[in-house]
Design a protein around this nucleic acid. Structure first.
Lengths: 352, 352
DNA sequence: CTGAAAGCGCTTACAG
DNA sequence: CTGAAAGCGCTTACAG
């Protein structure tokens, strides 16, 4: 390996001082360096393939060019990958390095504090604190040492900017798709687990139903565990109660998986006999089910990107004040929605 | 924010020179510093909550304490998360920082080279180059600038150490579970897509069949696309051809999803009528199917951890030579396997 | 066993 | 408009 070329080499080649090279390359002090010299120096640096030593610069400027991403449980949430991807690509655009630390889902406040400390010890310029399933959260106080941003929860103290998916809008959007296809008897399978998404999606369902001038009919709601079995049981229950929906909106894709199974057992075809829509766009379920499941995608990639964009703003201008944004959720159309059939009686042959 | 405490502060507090503090804290030159002073200094450093400035140290020693992880498409492979997790936790154990760069799956050699360059520009001490679906790979030459390690493929030139899942052993293990349960007519649903896993899993299937003194029966093989629809079609085909297996080993969990569906349609219960085993332990499929799918897990977490462990060895001792390891795959037992029924004729009522 | 000093490669007042 | 010099916080020959 040849020695890396340093600013000294560039200066020598250009016949100017280090100072001038540094100013030229960093465009410091507007017009500090003669425009012509500046261009010449830049050209030389490019030709010599000069890259400033980030460690040296960091030591001097007390900034590392690193952003720390603290994610809760990369492991179990398949979504985390998209958050990382969004953050990583945005970081690359800003010539920033993304450092990752994983926090266990069950980590207590102390462990979480240690994770933040570890990031701080590595001189990150900013921190993205990503959590799942919380309304509000009280991040470790140390987070305040550097610009920070929250994903998936809002800051209880309101000091830190945050972004969460707009579950309510997403759910409403899902139901609107059903309504647009002509459905009026739209069942909802709420989750039995109380997290923000549970409340938001229910609200969104009701919004869209009312908006269409329909009644929110309790007989069309059949809650279940937010798992495939829960969706299965909820659907069977719904059908047995004679809810007789032409479309089913499942709280999430896992439940939708159970809906498919229950419907197959009851010999109802999707989407000819009943339309189905899910939520999460969870790989590989949504695309693997057949017919392909139309569902609402969570804006993970976008939230990751938003986080680093917001952080860079904070980094360059600390006058920015905290904001709390809801990121819209988009419906991904596949093949599980069709116009409702003309209503006619159909024997629900149980095989038990 | 109070100024960070530096080595100078510790030296002053301890009444010794910076040099001594540095040696004491780094245990340099065995016995360089009087044992008693050393302990005293360490105690003081701890008490003062001193953390050496990594940027300064890095500048001086020309090492950043960062490891770069280049992953192909974090986005689409749900597995990447576990590789990252394994690598991150191992890195934390070694007090190393994990920096991540994502490479698109379709990235050409040039883009990939740029990703390596970007990591190098950030002064990473080593690089983990993670790929998917390759036998061998020719990594960008620049990878040779620092210790490096491959995940998911072996180096064509044999210079870089690598780790891949032992697909063959994993498949054999899966089939052995079936055999141990008493099955003899074990079908295999190979993938139509030619990747290393395809060949390895087929070989493993044959290994275990022969090892049990059985014949590899072509009638028991029914290939399909490695997707749910492919598994569905392959199963229907298998059944229609009268393959009449008591157990089905699907190339992957997505195909197994289709197997479940086909079996349900044909009114065969799992596992009472036919046992099923998959491969990948792909969340959330394997756990969401019911009964829960017994399947073979890919050692993603372990490969990620192995990569950084191997890298740290390389970092500390460059005499180490390249090795190419196959990481074993473990079967995760759930509820889709039972003893075969007594063989008796069963009408395969087709409903088409 | 301990310390004074050089130096890693930059940035940035300060002086001209 | 340009340059000489200090200094970021460490590590590590070198001298004693």
């Amino acid at each position: 390996m040849a020695r890396r070329v340093g600013i000294k080499d560039v200066a020598q080649e250009a016949g100017v001082s280090l100072t001038t090279v540094s100013h030229a390359l960093n465009d410091s002090l507007n017009g500090r360096v003669n425009a012509e010299t500046r261009e010449r120096i830049k050209e030389i640096a490019r030709r010599m393939n000069y890259h400033p030593n980030r460690l040296a610069r960091g030591l001097r400027t007390n900034s590392s060019g690193m952003i720390g991403l603290l994610t809760e449980e990369i492991a179990t949430t398949p979504h985390a990958g998209r958050i990382i991807l969004g953050a990583q690509e945005a970081a690359s655009r800003h010539n920033l390095t993304l450092a990752i630390i994983n926090s266990a889902l069950q980590a207590d406040a102390d462990e979480r504090r240690n994770d933040v400390l570890a990031l701080l010890d590595r001189h990150v310029d900013g921190i993205i604190y990503a959590t799942v399933y919380h309304d509000t959260v009280t991040p470790p106080e140390e987070l305040g040492s550097v610009p920070a941003v929250l994903i998936g929860a809002t800051d209880r103290t309101g000091r830190v900017s945050s972004v969460v998916p707009d579950e309510r809008q997403g759910a409403a959007d899902a139901v609107r798709h059903l309504i647009a296809a002509g459905h009026r008897r739209i069942a909802f399978l709420p989750s039995l687990v109380d997290v923000p998404a549970t409340r938001g999606r229910l609200l969104g369902y009701e919004d869209a139903i009312r908006e269409a001038g329909l009644e929110v009919d309790p007989a069309l709601q059949s809650p279940g565990e937010p798992e495939a079995r829960g969706g299965y049981a909820a659907t069977i229950d719904l059908l047995d109660r004679g809810g007789d929906p032409t479309a089913i909106f499942a709280y999430n894709d896992r439940m939708a998986m159970g809906v498919y199974r229950a419907l197959a057992e009851r010999r109802r075809r999707i989407p000819q006999d009943v339309s189905v829509i899910g939520f999460d766009d969870q790989a590989p379920i949504a695309g693997s089910l057949f017919p392909g499941l139309t569902t609402v995608a969570l804006p993970h990639y976008e939230m990751g990107a938003w986080a680093v964009e917001t952080l860079t703003t904070l980094l360059n201008d600390d006058g920015a004040h905290a904001e709390s944004v809801r990121m819209p959720c988009r419906t991904v159309e596949r093949e599980s929605i069709a116009a409702p059939r003309k209503p006619r009686a159909r024997a629900t042959s149980s095989r038990a």
